[in-house]
Simulated scan of single mutants.
Amino acid sequence: MATAPYDQDEPLAASAPGVLWALLTPLLALLDRTGLLTAPPDALQKIADRLDTIAERCGPAIATYSNPAKTLAAELADALPVVWTEGVSAGPAGRRFAAALAELSGTPAVVAELPEALAAHSALLAGRLAAGADPDDFFRDRVAEKPAMHARVVLLRDRPLDGLTAATAARELALTHDTPISELEPEAGGELETLAELIAVTDFAAVYLALASRA
């Protein structure tokens, strides 16, 4: 399995890419054998294949314009991530992403599930963290002055099984408040595969953001 963008001499944080699945895969196999959940060997192999694919797409050698993790990290620079999730797999992935951002780069983030997030975070997007909240920002010296922190929505979502989605309303709310939005949606697959993809991409993004903050 491909490795994460870490110096191998540094201790790995709990949120480092690959650490979670290295610990979780044996547990899934054990739970499958005891009948507590269904995670047969072929399902675990699909997870491993998906993680390898994501590592190839998001690795350090891949340029930002074709690397979803580097792109997300660049978009979140000097931003407050407002993570909205939709779907069974997206919920835990979003919560882990917020934890990884805090642990690896010290970046605060808020997270909520759709559609509840629309009401919960509407005031946040309308406040001083809104992109258009500071009319003097246009005249700011971008060399001498640190940019003000603004909110950026990160929408993590599965493909809705019943066709019902709050994603359109989420995009409209962000647009109404001049808030930029980043979206991640996994390729089709089982719940564990889509969970693995969302966690892997956001883990890589958290690492790249941490590396950029130390530069």
Rank of each mutant, 00 (worst) to 15 (best):
L124Q: 02
A119Q: 14
A22C: 09
E116K: 07
P41F: 03
V19S: 04
F97H: 03
D137H: 14
V82R: 04
P81I: 06
G87V: 03
P5I: 05
A98F: 05
V19C: 06
L173N: 05
A123R: 00
F204C: 09
A73Y: 09
D162H: 08
T71G: 12
A93W: 07
E193V: 13
D9L: 13
L30Q: 13
D162A: 09
D203V: 10
P115R: 03
L209G: 01
L44K: 01
V153R: 03
G189H: 10
G87T: 00
L129P: 04
T85F: 03
P60Q: 09
L198Y: 11
L114K: 02
T194K: 12
T53K: 12
A196R: 02
Y65K: 08
E172M: 11
R50C: 07
S122A: 15
G91D: 13
A200L: 04
A205Y: 04
L114Q: 03
D52H: 00
D78H: 15
A215F: 08
R33E: 15
Q8A: 15
E191S: 09
T168R: 14
A112S: 12
L80F: 07
A151N: 04
E103S: 13
Q8I: 15
A123W: 00
L27H: 10
A206Y: 02
A117G: 02
L27Q: 14
A2S: 06
S122I: 07
A2W: 06
L36N: 02
A205V: 01
T25L: 00
A79V: 10
G87A: 07
N67E: 10
P135A: 06
A151W: 00
P17A: 03
D136V: 12
A13N: 12
A61G: 06
E86Q: 13
R96Q: 11
M149N: 12
A99R: 14
A117E: 02
E172R: 13
A109D: 12
A130M: 04
C58A: 11
A77L: 10
T25S: 00
P17T: 13
R214E: 13
A29R: 00
